[in-house]
């Protein structure tokens, strides 16, 4: 059931992105182009989505389990660390350069557009690079027990 509902949510999410205009990189860039002919449409995509989702999150917050019995897994982090800001700066730059963020890139890959294929491959490499670096830093920070000590 959880897999099925994930499938339909993914489908609905994709349909929303297409209808909203998010899968057209030129439109996304027109939204980000405050110095040119500005297309405010994407603000309405976000506004509409937040309006609808807010109620559901308010309900979800107070439930230990989902309606299908899965544990409620909402993020608990509260710190504004440098990596949150730094990561968002890098993401925003990439978003502005190509007009793709992760969701629309995946949906556009579904149309068979080669440009989306190339973008998604690079995006996955970028994600793997982060995992690699993150693991490396974590290991570097944890002191290893000295050899020979039992």
């Amino acid at each position: 059931m959880l897999t099925l509902s994930a499938f339909f949510c993914g489908l609905l999410f994709g349909l929303g992105l297409i209808l909203g205009g998010m899968t057209n990189p030129a439109k996304v860039q027109a939204f980000l182009d405050l110095g040119g002919a500005w297309d405010p449409s994407l603000a309405l995509v976000m506004g509409g989505a937040i309006l609808v989702a807010s109620g559901a999150f308010a309900v979800a917050k107070n439930r230990p389990r989902s309606l299908l019995g899965a544990p409620m897994q909402l993020p608990s982090a509260r710190d504004l660390e440098p990596r949150l800001i730094g990561g968002s700066v890098l993401f925003g730059a990439g978003w502005g350069l190509a007009g793709f963020c992760p969701g629309p890139a995946i949906v556009t890959l579904g149309t068979g557009a080669p440009a989306a294929g190339l973008f998604v491959c690079a995006m996955l490499v970028g994600m793997l690079a982060f995992e690699g670096l993150d693991q490396f830093l974590k290991r570097a920070r944890t002191p290893r027990p000295a050899a020979g000590v039992r």
Binding site: F8, L12, F13, I18, V52, A53, A60, S66, L68
Partner: peptide, 17 residues
């Protein structure tokens, strides 16, 4: 489109948590 996105996020958190 935004309403559909919001609906997807809403259903997903309520059903899948």
């Amino acid at each position: 489109g935004g309403v559909l996105l919001g609906l997807s996020a809403a259903v997903f958190v309520l059903l899948n948590g």
